[in-house]
Amino acid sequence: MSSQLVQQYYRADKLPHIWCPGCGHGILMRSVSQAIHNLGLDKDKVCIVSGIGCSSRAPGYMDFNTLHTTHGRALAFATGVKMARPELEVIVVTGDGDATAIGGNHLIHAARRNINITTIVFNNNVYGMTGGQYSPTTPTGDLGTTAPYGNIDKSFDIATLAEAAGATYTARGTAYHAQQLIKLVENAIKNKGFSLIDAISICPTYYGRKNKKGSVVDMMNWLKDHAVDAKVAQKLPPEKLEGKFLIGEFKNVTEPEYTEEYQKIIERFQKER
């Protein structure tokens, strides 16, 4: 027997999933399904789209309309689904590489359009599926199989990137702060526009081992000890935020939503007919 959540929202015959022991993606995936449950969404009206990479295997396990696309292109495929059937709740599950490297162009344009798609970036700071290369969010100086002498790249702050491009809901959560993440996913789905959550995950197998981050539990504790809620951070002096990262909700505003604006054009002609 399995949990009620699994029975109701998963293709249990496809479990256990392929992710490594201690990979944070299972926690993030669970949080997404828990948020969908809490919102009482109709499973037939939820469409989960993903790209390529460890993160993007999630939809296969989830009992919704699911679409596993090509590397970096989840948001473009999802835009087609959402435009064609706006009544569907479209959620994109993507990785840090999938969304901000090869998929970067689609990310900024989906945000610019403010199309009602909830994008959750399973951000584990590494290309896991291909064996541990560094990614656009790998911290400068860290190691990856393609950064054997230390990563000289600067990394993206995905939430700020999406906000600058026009997203109307941005937030960051972590695999450790799963309770909060569920709430963030709920709010992101409720936002009638482009929502992005930078969901920090952990990759013990590659990123953790290569950078000597200790055990799975050590990596989870690192998240616990280095995340500061954005509201709390406002009251803290700068030195308290040294080496920390912000979690929680960063932006939550309402602006015209793309498919609704297009529907207005269609309705203009329906009245004429």
Binding site: V49, A76, F77, A78, T79, G80, A84, N105
Partner: peptide, 13 residues
Amino acid sequence: IAGMATAIGGSLA
């Protein structure tokens, strides 16, 4: 690339 992906998404819907 996006044009092709979006057209496929529309067809799936």
